[in-house]
Amino acid sequence: MKVTCEYAKMGSNHVFVRFSYVIDKLVNQYIKKVYQTLNTKQPKGFIEAYYAYGSLTVQFDLTITNYKAMKKAISLIISDTTITKVTKGNEVIIPVTYNTEFGLDLALASDYLKLSQDEIIDIHSSGKYTVYMIGFLPGFCYLGGLDKRIYLPRKKTPRLLIPKGSVGIASSQTGVYPLDSPGGWQIIGRTNLLLYNPYSEQPFLLLPGDTVRFVKK
């Protein structure tokens, strides 16, 4: 698979690389691979890389390198990267209490989707999901692989407070709020599992590349 990309300056000390304008699982895996290689190879002046569905950004140290040199280092890594060598992550099981008390939008979702609450729960808890990206909040994973039958649009007006552990859906994505936070995802259940604990040796339950299963509690 041939992946094309375009480069842009992001501020004075970041290189922005766009691989895709739309969600594409293969492209996302490819970006993950580039991200991993950057971290292993640590090109001269590399500070950190972070990525999303279709793009990646690299911060560099302006006192050691410059935009042109870092862009070159990234493009060399990209030209050496093939999609076949994706490193598989862990499989993480997340127990979820699905009900109307914790699933603030479960009843609405049932009306909207013309499915019973149990059907929604069965479909959501039988899927296998991949961590596409982490962003928005520490440990907030955007999980791909949602069954089309339970796609839900974001709420028109975001909630001011979504409790920590809430499991939600936003169009083709599902995910878990790691912290109390405002948000617009449709909430169908809640987990007690801590996805983020800054005081722990390993602050994050999920890492890029992990796969996730939700099980009904």
Binding site: M10, G11, F16, A52, G54, T57, M133
Partner: peptide
């Protein structure tokens, strides 16, 4: 809207 991508201090 664009496909969510990295942002930073100063974006």
């Amino acid at each position: 809207d664009v496909l969510s991508h990295p942002v930073m201090f100063g974006s």
